[in-house]
Simulated assay, not measured.
Amino acid sequence: MRVLGFITKRPIILSLVLGLIVSSLSYFFQPLFPYHSIAHRGASAYAPENTMASFQKAVALGFDFIELDIRMSKDQELIVIHDADVKRTTNGEGFVRDLTVDELKQLDAGSWFHPNYSSEKIPLLSEVLDTFGGKINLLIEMKFPENETNMTEKLAHTLYEYFEQGLDPSTVKVQSFHIFEIKKFHQLCPEVSAGILLSKPLDMFHLASYRSFASFLAVHYRLLSKSLVNQALFFDYEIYTWTIQDQPLFTVMQKLGVHGIISNQEKKKTSKFTVD
């Protein structure tokens, strides 16, 4: 009986082993898809995040996009900063929404990273557009626009001013976690590609319903799978992933077929494969 049991189970075991081998070989030989390299808050591994220095470094390193965050100042200007509070990335204290542009501009936004960057200031979105618009693609994240009076409207109006001056709308993308505000932005500024940031999966119903105003999804890398990518592609979304820190993850994301990789650093080139 023991012999018969072993014989009966052996094909199952062999099938499992062969399945694992085929699966591993299939992954190993999957192509490395090309992607847009997106500098997270600028080239923030090399210079203080969301500063002109980090954006300039991203250009110098050859990134395809700069990703940046915007909030509203007390006097209703679009400010480039990630946190609601200035404490982490400046020598000041207080909430961005409680400070005027003049007060924000007095802060040192670089010394926390390295003393060499002590002259860095918190940029206005207009300053970024003046310096980098048309030089590199821009991916703008609206931080909690649902809590900021008229942020979405202000952003759309500002972008239109630059489009009238010659900036190509195809070089700008806008994203947010807040779906309603992205829908509103698309209605106000349909020329600009709008996307939804995701920290949890979407079902097929939501993928279908959001497609009328969103053209890309920015998905945390831990949520990504080939199945999710295929579902998104079925609805003609582009897929971006955030935030890649470890070099091996670049290859994993390429094998999944994402369109853009948001990272603090560039992918290290090797003799075996070079992106673009």
Rank of each mutant, 00 (worst) to 15 (best):
79 I>C: 07
82 H>Y: 12
69 D>I: 02
158 T>R: 13
113 F>M: 05
68 L>C: 07
134 G>I: 02
47 A>K: 14
99 L>H: 06
59 V>I: 13
154 K>D: 09
131 T>D: 09
118 S>H: 15
97 R>H: 13
123 P>Y: 04
117 Y>L: 00
117 Y>A: 00
55 F>A: 03
60 A>Y: 13
133 G>E: 01
137 N>C: 12
158 T>A: 10
77 E>K: 15
124 L>V: 05
155 L>G: 03
140 I>W: 11
94 G>F: 11
60 A>T: 15
136 I>C: 04
81 I>H: 14
94 G>D: 07
104 L>Y: 04
90 T>A: 04
151 M>R: 05
71 R>M: 04
150 N>Y: 14
68 L>D: 02
115 P>E: 12
61 L>G: 03
147 N>H: 13
81 I>N: 10
156 A>E: 10
123 P>A: 02
132 F>R: 03
123 P>F: 02
84 A>C: 01
49 E>T: 04
62 G>C: 06
71 R>S: 02
141 E>A: 06
114 H>W: 11
52 M>T: 09
74 K>F: 03
107 L>C: 06
84 A>P: 01
56 Q>K: 15
78 L>R: 07
97 R>A: 11
85 D>E: 13
127 E>G: 05
130 D>A: 12
66 I>H: 06
77 E>F: 06
52 M>R: 11
101 V>R: 14
143 K>M: 05
91 N>F: 05
153 E>F: 11
128 V>M: 03
60 A>R: 14
139 L>N: 14
55 F>C: 02
146 E>K: 15
103 E>F: 08
154 K>H: 12
47 A>P: 07
112 W>D: 02
146 E>V: 07
131 T>E: 15
141 E>Y: 10
130 D>R: 14
130 D>H: 15
62 G>H: 11
98 D>K: 13
140 I>V: 12
137 N>D: 13
93 E>G: 11
118 S>N: 14
116 N>T: 12
106 Q>H: 12
111 S>Y: 09
117 Y>S: 01
72 M>H: 06
92 G>R: 08
55 F>R: 08
61 L>H: 09
145 P>I: 02
79 I>S: 03
129 L>M: 12
55 F>I: 03
107 L>H: 10
51 T>M: 04
145 P>R: 08
83 D>F: 09
132 F>N: 00
126 S>E: 15
141 E>R: 10
66 I>C: 01
54 S>P: 11
74 K>T: 00
67 E>P: 05
69 D>S: 08
97 R>Q: 13
71 R>N: 13
102 D>F: 12
134 G>C: 05
155 L>T: 03
86 V>W: 07
66 I>D: 00
112 W>V: 00
138 L>S: 07
137 N>S: 14
107 L>M: 12
149 T>I: 14
63 F>N: 10
109 A>L: 06
152 T>M: 08
109 A>Y: 08
51 T>L: 03
103 E>P: 06
100 T>N: 10
138 L>W: 11
127 E>A: 08
91 N>Y: 08
136 I>K: 04
65 F>I: 00
68 L>T: 01
104 L>H: 04
64 D>S: 13
